[in-house]
Amino acid sequence: MHVRSTLVGATALLLSAALAATAAAATGPASSSGGHGATRKAVEAAVAAGVPGATATATDAHGAWSATAGTGDLRTGAPRSAADRYRVGSITKTFVATVLLQLEAEGRLSLDDKVDKWLPGVVRGHGHDGRRVTVRQLLNHTSGVFDYTADEDFDRAYFLKDGFFQHRYDTLTPQELVAIAMKHAPDFAPGATWKYSNTNYILAGMVIGKVTGHSYATEINRRVIGPLHLTATSLPGTRVTVPQPSSRAYSKLSLTATGPTYDVTTLNPSIASSAGEMISDSADLDRFYAALLRGKLLPARQLKEMKATVKIDGDPNTRYGLGLMDTRLTCGTHVWGHAGGIHGSTTTAVTTADGRHALAFNFNGDWTGSHAAVVEAEFC
């Protein structure tokens, strides 16, 4: 899920004097050799720029390495932990796409099926027509379907301060989220161009339900989380808390990066559903993306389809596949993965194409901090 109202730039006011007193920590074999020194400095720089705290874990041929910086709880001063679980937002999309590609490999659907085949009449209204949109277009964001999080009423109710504190524990169904999108015209005709839309993945989760007779959460658990032994990864549904160990999550709940900082740790993630409800930790995310890119979750044909990318307007260095992004770094290295944001939590998880070098990290504030700088530091 994309946090529209709170991710506003790369600089912000320092949160409190407590941040100045928190030290960075690194563990693992690389902390003594300095092999990840640039990554550690980039994580520390994010905290210096105003992020309350950060946690990162990388895996490569030398093993696993972790670093933390800043604080996990502004009230107590407790530090962040390498074992922290956190909300991963739109990284959920890669899990959803993986399940749909597995179903295609089993012959249970085609990515070129029209959405209306599985969800008859659901994508209708103000020019939307599920008879013209394919499952593939949902997964690579070329459907043109309006993003429900861009609805102004939804934005005020769930992302800005007054609305958030009134509605943070609301339960919304996928059908209700899609209905919000259907009140608007499509952004463009199906296939005409690219635009990120969380509604695409709400619909994708609903398709999984229709094809399998089970919820997308059940299928992700059975097909991905269980086989990979992702013990810190979960789909909370309507559960409002994050399992321990975890840190607090913070937001400005504002259109600017200034002003008060609010604890937004507890919320009902049904507002994100299959577009962004998941919880994980850095080690699990490294394991997931490494396994995915090494072909352990998908047959070669389906992995190739997932990696077939389309252009993202305005970003010449990033292309979007099926729930998977290909980013070319300044040093020429390509990394594959996804980023995610939800109230008080922003996350990036990427790996090299061979799955042998992976990085996942999280900031527990949603208004500042350079994710690109951390990725560049690790891989370049």
Results as ranks from 00 to 15, higher is better:
59 T>D: 07
59 T>Q: 14
61 A>E: 13
62 H>C: 04
63 G>Q: 12
65 W>T: 11
65 W>P: 00
67 A>M: 13
69 A>Y: 00
72 G>D: 02
72 G>A: 08
72 G>E: 02
72 G>H: 05
74 L>Y: 09
74 L>E: 03
76 T>W: 04
76 T>K: 03
77 G>N: 07
80 R>C: 10
82 A>N: 04
83 A>F: 09
85 R>D: 03
86 Y>H: 08
87 R>I: 03
93 K>G: 01
94 T>D: 00
94 T>P: 00
94 T>N: 02
98 T>L: 08
99 V>I: 14
99 V>Q: 02
101 L>K: 03
101 L>I: 05
101 L>H: 03
103 L>Y: 04
103 L>W: 05
113 D>E: 09
114 K>N: 04
116 D>V: 09
117 K>N: 06
119 L>D: 01
119 L>I: 05
121 G>E: 07
124 R>Q: 15
125 G>R: 08
126 H>E: 08
127 G>H: 12
128 H>M: 10
131 R>K: 09
133 V>T: 13
133 V>R: 02
133 V>A: 01
134 T>E: 05
135 V>H: 07
138 L>V: 05
138 L>P: 00
139 L>D: 01
140 N>Q: 13
142 T>W: 08
144 G>T: 08
147 D>H: 02
149 T>V: 15
151 D>N: 15
151 D>A: 11
151 D>T: 12
156 R>D: 03
157 A>R: 12
158 Y>M: 04
158 Y>K: 02
159 F>G: 01
161 K>R: 15
162 D>T: 13
169 Y>H: 11
169 Y>E: 13
169 Y>C: 05
175 Q>N: 06
176 E>C: 00
181 A>D: 02
181 A>C: 10
186 P>F: 14
187 D>P: 02
187 D>L: 15
188 F>Q: 09
188 F>K: 05
189 A>V: 09
190 P>V: 11
191 G>C: 08
194 W>G: 02
196 Y>V: 07
197 S>N: 06
199 T>Q: 02
